[in-house]
């Protein structure tokens, strides 16, 4: 599904190297978690994969189902099936949440030469998906993320994911700012989307999220590289001992 080879990335504006040779292979239907201390490059990895400006790839490659990702525009990556759930979902005053969702769904369908979804079918679908995430009609009507609580914003990210049905989902610290109940709700939303054809890359600081979204593989990232990979037990090790031992090992 997703294959990252020797990815080196620096900031475009300054001479700061962030990723120093990331290698990662995610198979179809697999859930991978990346953990790591602040500043290790986790979020940068998610931004570079989804095509945000401001980064320069100096070496390496990333592909989605064999398609070279890094040359594509962000919208093309989305249409190819990549989805990033933002750590800080963006507020867009003046654009209704429904309009936003429908525009996105139809844009992706158009890019894939599929017919647009009818207004009626869309409404039905969005209501159904919103209900399971406990997103009420009022939230759907409001401008995108404007006035949403932290939990509402994250639920709205998962709603977008559910509507767009991507094959590769990257969750960037989706647990940040969530209370226990909200985390459970969001995780249930994510788990409902798990399946043979869909893979996940879950970026998090804490093992707690991984109690809800159980990963197949866990990777530890530090100073721009993946320094250790293993099964779910690796996350528990971090939870118990912190990163210090792993970092020492990695160096």
């Amino acid at each position: 599904m997703l294959e990252i080879n020797n990815l080196h990335v620096k900031l475009e504006e300054e001479d700061k190297v962030i990723l120093r040779g990331v290698n990662l292979k995610i198979g179809a239907g697999e859930v991978h978690a990346i953990m790591g201390p602040n500043g290790s490059g986790k979020s940068t990895l998610s931004y570079v994969l989804s095509g945000r400006d401001g980064y320069e790839v100096t070496d390496g490659s990333a592909s989605l189902d064999g398609e070279e990702l890094l040359e594509m525009e962000p919208e093309a990556r989305a249409a190819a099936g990549l989805f990033l759930a933002f750590q800080y979902p963006v507020e867009i005053p003046g654009v209704g949440n429904m309009t936003f969702l429908r525009t996105a769904v139809n844009a992706q369908r158009k890019a894939r030469n599929e017919p647009e979804i009818s207004a009626g079918d869309f409404l039905k679908l969005v209501r159904e998906k919103a209900k399971t995430l406990k997103i009420d009609a009022e939230m759907l009507k409001r401008p995108v993320n404007v006035g949403f609580s932290g939990g509402e914003k994250k639920r709205n990210e998962i709603l977008q994911m559910a509507m767009l049905e991507p094959k590769m989902c990257i969750l960037d610290e989706t647990d940040s700012g969530l209370d226990v109940d909200a985390m459970k709700l969001v995780s249930e939303g994510v788990n409902a989307l798990r399946g043979a054809g869909r893979s996940f890359l879950v970026i998090t600081h804490y093992q707690r999220l991984l109690d809800h979204i159980k990963p197949d593989f866990v990777h530890i990232m530090a100073a721009g590289r993946i320094i250790k990979s293993g099964g779910p037990e690796l996350a528990l090790e971090v939870e118990n001992n912190g990163y210090a031992d792993l970092l020492a090992e990695g160096i």
Binding site: G51, E73, E75, A78, A79, F86, V90, A107
Partner: peptide, 10 residues
């Protein structure tokens, strides 16, 4: 970027 990351063309 947020809109584009959801597939909306530039």
């Amino acid at each position: 970027f947020y809109l584009r990351s959801r597939g909306v063309p530039l």
